[in-house]
Structure formats: structure tokens, C-alpha cells
Amino acid sequence: MADFFSDPKTAAQISFLLENIPFAIWETIYSTVIATVFAYLIGLPLGVILVTGAKDGIRPLPAPLMQALNVVVNLLRSVPFLILMVLVMPLSRIILGTTIGTPGILVPLTVAAFPFAARLVESSIREMDKGLIEAAQSMGCSTLQIVWKVMLPESLPSLLSGFLTAFITILGYGAMAGAIGGGGLGAMALMKGWALQQFLVIYGAVIVIVILVQIFQSAGSHLVNRMDRRTASGQKKGGKH
């Protein structure tokens, strides 16, 4: 052990970690947040349409259109992320002008994540009590009002919990993006750790990723519980009333 700690390589790795980890954490969080936000900008409306436009939905859309949407969502979800990332590179070049670094992975992450987000949104809204929609219709709500004022607010806790799942999944995808030239903690573990045989760097980066996931998950779950008014026990946890 004494050898390990007195080894100059160890000292170099530790100072490398200390120097580079803050920026890597920043890159990871920043790319994950931006990709998740964009994934939801597309996925949320898409998820809503998957529910409302269905045959038994409140505003059924033509069946071929719905089938096409479902095929696109399933197709994008079935392509492995690493391959999708390579396939999406040309799109990335058009939109952001680059395919490398942290900006380079935003487009692939978004493309990979929005169908996932759409499915999460879809299942959150579907689990809502249908009676609420009927009640809203009986009060003279338009389709848009039902979506805005009933569906989304009533499924908010479930939507948030889905958002959290998506966020953490995208964080994991982002780490993989290191393999094709992305930035962040994943790239650090792969490029500086694995490729250069600096195991301390690998472990350091991985431990930070694990800690980040834990923090987001528990903070997120806490928030979801606070917002959930659907059970009397949830009230007490919320503590507001």
C-alpha cells in the first residue's frame, strides 16, 4: 500500500482528478439538463398526442398518423444508443455545426431520449382516472383545456417521476458518449482512465457519477412526494396543510 501511495503515478492521477473533475461534472450536468429539456420539449407534446389522438382518446387522430407516430417512437427506441449517436452525427453537424465535445452529443442525446420521454409521458397520463376527463367534458372544457388544466396537472407527480427517470437515463447515455468524442465524466473515465490505464481516474469518475445519480434521485423523489396530493398520507409528507 505504501508503494501505491508513494507511487508518483498515483499522485499524478489524483491531481489530474482534482483538477479536471469540477469541469467534467459541469459538462455532464449541463449536457444532461439541456438534452432532457429538449427531449421533453418534443416528448411531452408527443406523449400527449399519443394519448389524446388514440382511438379512444379525447380527440382521435387518423389511425395511419397514429401508427406512423408509434412506429417512429418504437424505431428510435430500438436502435442502440451508440449506433444511433453515429447515425445522428450528420444531423448534429447541420444543427450545431459540430459532432464532437459536449455540444456534439446534445443532438444525439435528444434524439435518443425524446421517444423515451414520450412513452413515459404517455403512460403517466394514461394512468390518470378517466372520470376526471369525463367530468371536465361535462363542464364544457375544450380539448386543449382538458390537456392543460386536467391531464397535465393531475398527472404531475407521475410526470415528474418520469422526468427524473429520463434525466438519469440521459445522464447514463451521456457517459457513453465519451466513446465517440463527447465530454464530461464518462469521457474522462473512458479516455483518460481506461485508455491511459489510469484506474484511479476511472474509479474517481465513476464514483462521482454514482453520487450525482443518488443526489438527483433522492432530491427528485422528495419533490415528487411533496407535490403528490392524491393520497391523504402524501399530505402529511407534504406538510403544507
Partner: peptide, 25 residues
Amino acid sequence: DQKALIAQRRSISMIFQQFNLLMQR
């Protein structure tokens, strides 16, 4: 039409077996 129907529905209220209250409000 839809618009007239929506207006008409405001004068016809309904209550339900399962109450159908908005739980987040």
C-alpha cells in the same frame, strides 16, 4: 356545433359516483 355544445354544457352540471374531483387542486 362543438362551440354551442360546450356553452350548453355549462348549464348542465353533473355529479358522479366516484366524485371525480381534481386531486391536485
